[in-house]
């Protein structure tokens, strides 16, 4: 039921609410980690997901990997709701690459064991063909075949991240969730991994959800960008649209915070006065209003509606007056 126009990955009004209780007799409180998120990712695209820690980026990744179930809403892959598929089926289509290559590889297993695990779990091929597949994928990620008998502790951070990429790709998934894949790596290694991810996408037509706090890296790799704040997508646009003409005050603040290596510029003043709010007690109205330099009187009481723009979507009262149609997503 998929055709060229069906997005390979779609989220429809996905919310995730956690109930937490601090202490035995404390009152139960709900934490909206993801709040009514709708997103579409085109086949072969890279959706960059940016936002501060605690904004719900990682929870979103877990939902897509089937590690968490959404409280409401649904996730569709190729137009099929994921709920109908079980975790094993999902695993063949979506695979993760995690942030910390020192934590994402089991230190007690050899590299060959780590990479071939997906094949063994899903019973794909016999020992000989699995061995061949591991050799092929190692070559693709730029590692020599003789690392097969090595252990993670014998490898550098960059080499480990290549192993993690090999494990993610060996079942030929359509979608790869990259959760801060380079933030634990040194600068010189980071660029190698970014280049590799770019090459692999072109070569295999992969679709990425690229989660990062490094906006320069997102700008470099992504085709579309979604900005998340306290569980909501506050702006979504193409890379050019967002990085050249950010509209939401929060997107603008994020972009101003990027420190390019230009000694002529000083440290920017982002005017984001208050600290990141407590997600258990989010501010009323627009969640961003206490930090917003352009807040209007209604921002503290009325939550802004999602509006479609020429290039994507935005949630901000500043654009209410514009002739933007309410979103239909």
């Amino acid at each position: 039921m998929s055709d060229a126009t069906t997005p390979v990955l779609e989220l429809r009004n996905v919310s995730k609410v956690y109930t937490i209780r601090q202490g035995l007799f404390a009152e139960r409180k709900s934490l909206r980690a993801i709040d009514d998120v709708s997103l579409k990712v085109e086949r072969g695209g890279v959706l960059g997901l940016v936002g501060e820690s605690g904004c719900g980026k990682s929870t979103l990744a877990k939902i897509l990997l089937g590690l968490e179930t959404p409280t409401t809403g649904e996730v569709l892959i190729d137009g099929e709701p994921v709920g109908a598929q079980d975790r094993r089926k999902l695993a063949r289509r979506i695979q993760p690459i995690f942030q910390d290559p020192y934590s994402s590889l089991n230190p007690r297993k050899s590299i060959a064991d780590i990479i071939s695990l997906p094949l063994r779990v899903h019973g794909i091929g016999d020992a000989a063909s699995q061995d061949k597949a591991v050799r092929e994928i190692l070559d693709i990620v730029g590692l020599p075949a003789r690392v097969m008998n090595s252990y993670p502790s014998q490898m550098s951070g960059g080499q480990r991240q290549r192993v993690a990429i090999a494990r993610a790709l060996i079942m030929k998934p359509e979608i790869v969730i990259c959760d801060e894949p380079t933030s634990a790596l040194d600068v010189s290694v980071q660029s190698q991994i970014l280049n590799l991810l770019g090459e692999l996408r072109r070569e295999f037509g992969l679709t990425y959800l690229f989660i990062s706090h490094n906006l320069a890296v997102v700008e470099h790799l992504a085709t579309r960008v979604a900005v998340m704040y306290l569980g909501r997508i506050v702006e979504e646009a193409s890379v050019a649209g967002l990085f050249d003409h950010a509209r939401h005050p929060y997107s603008q603040a994020l972009l101003e915070s990027v420190l390019t290596p230009d000694p002529a510029l000083g440290v920017p003043d982002t005017q984001l006065g208050a600290a990141y709010p407590n997600p258990i007690a989010p501010p009323s109205g627009c969640h961003f209003h206490p930090r917003c330099p352009k807040a209007l009187p209604q921002c503290s009481s009325v939550a802004p509606r999602p509006l479609t723009t020429a290039d994507g979507r935005i949630e901000c009262h500043l654009f209410d007056e514009e002739k933007a149609e309410p979103a239909t997503a």
Binding site: S156, G158, V187, S188, Q190, S191, Q192, L194, N195, G198, L215, A216, V217, E219, H220, L221, V239, F243, V258, T260, P261
Partner: peptide, 25 residues
């Protein structure tokens, strides 16, 4: 020089272009 080539610089590095690398360890 190698380090500076490794990082994407908004407005300077072409989006999606190959980044410079420092091979080896």
């Amino acid at each position: 020089r190698g380090l500076l080539r490794c990082i994407p610089v908004p407005g300077k590095t072409e989006r999606g272009a190959e980044l410079g690398t420092i091979p080896g360890i």
